[in-house]
């Protein structure tokens, strides 16, 4: 076998790789941010659903920059959330348990839903907290740690 090296393959790269779609997306974000500021309307853009080249994505990242908050959520794999330099525009990237990107979204909102505590979790936590509290010795002067009984 002569080997794969004998097969001449030449990759022809585009000049700068920019399709113009990244630029157009920033205009879209401008309009949506205006709606958030004036009407409180939230929105989200799925970056994987758009024809963006690697260069487009890089341009978008560089343009939007990084703001004050970054969070990492560990639930069924990692989720990385950060606010861009433009307050109200968040980048939310969801990874699978083996580290592959499964969704990549720009959210125009004051707080991405994935960070907010789900109401059901609050109710569950309340029950668990009381249960755990029951295992501690009672405070001086109280006969029980049970919230409901007090």
């Amino acid at each position: 076998m002569s080997g794969l090296a004998d097969i001449g393959v030449r990759i022809v790269a585009a000049q700068d790789g920019l399709s113009g779609n990244g630029h157009a997306l920033i205009h879209e974000l401008d309009k949506r941010l205006e709606r958030l500021a004036e009407q409180g309307a939230t929105d989200a853009i799925d970056l994987r659903g758009l024809p963006l080249s690697a260069a487009d994505l890089q341009m978008l990242e560089d343009f939007l920059g990084v703001g004050e908050i970054e969070a990492r959520i560990d639930a069924l794999g990692l989720t990385r959330v950060y606010e861009t330099a433009y307050a109200g525009i968040w980048r939310v990237t969801y990874y699978s348990e083996d580290g592959k990107v499964v969704a990549d979204v720009l959210e125009v909102t004051r707080q991405p839903g994935i960070i907010t505590t789900p109401p059901g979790d609050v109710a569950d936590a309340c029950g668990r907290l009381r249960e755990a509290l029951g295992d501690l010795p009672p405070l001086p002067g109280r006969s029980t740690n049970n919230c409901e009984a007090s």
């Binding site: 799925d46 659903g49 639930a75 069924l76 939310v92 969801y94 969704a103 994935i114």
Partner: peptide, 14 residues
């Protein structure tokens, strides 16, 4: 968790 479920749905929507 409920968060994991929300995440799953985000991926599904995508």
């Amino acid at each position: 968790s409920r968060r994991a479920f929300l995440k799953y749905c985000a991926a599904l929507a995508s």
